[in-house]
Write a protein that binds this DNA or RNA. Structure first.
Lengths: 337, 337
DNA sequence: TTGTATGCGTTATCAA
DNA sequence: TTGATAACGCATACAA
């Protein structure tokens, strides 16, 4: 393993100069910088993160607190982040986050204390806490927000366009010929719930569906049982919908189950679409028409933003919207007759 | 932050003595050790893992390679390990493992190279690779095996008793009065598939069920669609089973779906039980009777074994079997009539 | 059984 | 713009 001394010797400069070159210090002449770069390349030198942390006191790892893994979304995101870090030769300091513990800042503070991370990825719902942002700013910790409900000055954000995706799903159903389409919405306090519902309504309006009669909305609150109840209620309507768009895959599966139980075939009698592209949605039969969040791209972008210090200098924060994927599978088809 | 020097000063000894005391070296007198312990407690001293790694070259983090997270099991285990490490004030170096890449040792080797971990948790199927064990032994890396199919000399193992759990599930069904019980087995090459099937047969034999007629076995291969097909086949039998025990929750859900589709009620007309206690099994309706693997206990034990160096000195390896939990929920009931 | 001095690979201080 | 040297906190060779 080559050290900074080897590089300095080969380039014919002092170690401090090499250090400066590596860390993009302004006071290095172009010529010297070039010499150093070449030596680094030749020796295949990689700075030791350990020695660096020893000296600076801050870890090079990327910090992430994650909540309820049962939602599928969290564990998918977790997986994507791990992969992105792997690719960037970086490590993650991950710890569980207790949403029910009211003192979020204290939790974040302890995490920082323990891990000494200098950068963090903030996921919902933590990414919307003003207190947490204040704490991070105070401690000089860089952060990237994933799917925040509002932009935060000084923080870059990465997300997808939930509203557009929901509109796309609904348009797909309308194009198939469906005239009575229901939406099973998520939990009230969750950001994506509103966005997906708005997307549904966008498409309904532009597709000429009448709100309340042919564009029906029910609250499934991301809960399996409640989604089953909603579905039952919808299918017992005098003019029952021929398609259901659920705000996530779990609820879509609940809808399929209830429809089957009531003697309806999917997709012949009723089409069902979900959101999130979870594994179970892929493996059930018929497999689920759904939206795949670009989690890998989001994770990769988040890691890049955290690494690139130049983006942090600016006060203005940019919100990066990444393209999602709409996946048509077997659970949606034209309506009966 | 207190350093080893502060401790030495307070205890009135040299740093090396403190170091020895911390690292459980034999040559420290009882009196000195006590003095050091007290100083450590008083100063709330925690050795810096960074400085330690700087010096020794090996990371204090626990390494883990994890495969297909879609199975639910992996992500649950991952979660449990994270929690156990959190509790022990330890970190994990986690990386994705590509099962399809044939050269497993090369992958493990690269991982060790990059992370410098001195201890690893090996999960299925990696924990059964003799080549990987040879590599780890050669590199002097401590390891703990989770649910290996065979014991490995020099490696502690932690697991649950799949066979006993499967027997318990089946006995529960027999006790409810079921006489015709089917088992949907997992993938042939997977260890637990055999164990769970054997457990099923144990209970069937002791319960007086006739193999092939009242104790039916089908291969669902942990696949949703195949499990649905198996269920259909079973339910179309002239003497159809009144209960189905699937080797995991996903297949159990497939069974429930198919049963409903065929006009049967769960659990009134047919009982269904699963294995693993995944989140989806908890949230569907009726919720699933299943076996919860003691993953948190397994993770905690694994971390402890890795930390306690004294267990590593012995050549004989112990296999720690942890108690599971059998959870009766709404999907099982007495047979009809 | 205990203590002293040195080095691990960086970055920062200060002087050149 | 550059360089010599100290310092970060720990573990160990070597000495006592």
């Amino acid at each position: 393993m080559a050290t900074i001394y080897d590089v300095a010797a080969m380039a014919g400069v002092a170690v401090k100069t090499v250090s400066r070159a590596i860390n993009h210090h302004p006071n290095v002449s172009l010529k010297t910088r070039a010499k150093v770069q070449q030596a680094i390349a030749e020796l295949d030198y990689v700075p030791s993160p350990i020695a660096r942390q020893m000296r600076t006191g801050e870890s090079t790892a990327i910090g992430m607190l994650y909540g309820d893994p049962s939602s599928g979304y969290q564990s998918q995101l977790n997986h994507a982040m791990l992969k992105a870090c792997s690719n960037a030769r970086l490590y993650m300091a991950v710890e569980l986050f207790d949403e029910s513990d009211s003192d979020w800042t204290a939790q974040v503070d302890r995490f920082i204390q323990r891990t000494k991370v200098a950068s963090m990825v903030l996921v919902p719902p933590i990414c919307d806490s003003a207190d947490v942002h204040a704490l991070l700013r105070e401690q000089g910790i860089r952060s990237v927000l994933i799917s925040p409900s509002q932009p935060v000055p000084g923080c870059n954000a990465v997300c997808m366009d939930d509203r557009a995706a929901a509109k796309q799903v609904t348009r797909h159903l309308i194009k198939l010929g469906h005239q009575r389409i229901a939406h099973i919405a998520g939990r009230e306090n969750h950001v994506v719930t509103l966005l997906r519902r708005l997307g549904f309504e966008d498409a309904a309006v532009s597709g000429g569906l009448e709100p309340g009669r042919t564009a029906l909305v029910r609250e499934g609150r991301f809960n399996f049982k409640e989604a089953m109840d909603c579905t039952k209620e919808l299918l017992l309507l005098p003019e029952r919908p021929t398609a259901i768009f659920a705000a996530n895959d779990h609820m879509a599966i609940a809808a399929i189950m209830m429809a089957r139980q009531m003697g309806l075939r999917v997709p012949e009698d009723i089409s069902v679409a979900g959101f999130d592209d979870t594994w179970i949605g892929q493996s059930i039969w018929p497999s689920l028409t759904t939206v795949a969040q670009p989690l890998e791209a989001i994770a990769t972008m988040a890691v890049e933003l955290l690494q690139d210090r130049s983006t942090q200098a600016e006060t203005l924060s940019t919100n990066h919207v990444l393209p999602h994927e709409f996946i048509v599978r077997g659970s949606t088809a034209p309506p009966p007759e």
